[in-house]
Design a protein around this nucleic acid. Structure first.
Length: 105
DNA sequence: CGTATGACTAGCT
DNA sequence: CAGCTAGCCATAC
């Protein structure tokens, strides 16, 4: 039995490039739709942003609450833009970039 | 084991 | 739109 945090990492690493996910979504996929707080805690504890694309994890509204790596929020936005995600007014269009957990897989 | 904290969310004012 | 409250889970101390 892995810890909730470990499971969140597994899911986060599955997020494809050019797509984003939300804390709520990750919590749901992890098995606890209300553990969004725990997801955030895991991301903050994030061991390696290289294996865990926490920058692809946004709030439920497509906005971002925080980021511990780089310059913080600015770096997070910049990374998303580099990935091909369009960031408008510090927000991302979840209707377009929201990851759908590869329904094929 | 109990308390405190947090990168959350939704609802109200 | 901005600010505050309440609920909820997992982790750290």
């Amino acid at each position: 039995m892995k810890t909730f945090t470990q499971r969140v990492y597994e899911i986060a690493t599955q997020i494809p490039k050019g797509k984003v996910s939300t804390y709520k979504q990750l919590a749901l996929l992890a098995g606890s739709p209300k553990a969004v707080r725990a997801v955030g805690a895991a991301m903050r504890n994030n061991p390696d942003t290289t294996v865990v694309p926490c920058h692809r994890v946004l709030a439920s509204d497509g906005t971002m609450h925080g980021y511990s790596a780089g310059e913080g929020i600015p770096t997070k936005i910049h990374k998303l833009e580099e990935e091909g995600v369009k960031v408008v007014n510090g927000k991302v269009d979840l209707n377009i970039f929201l990851w759908k957990q590869s329904p094929q897989k």
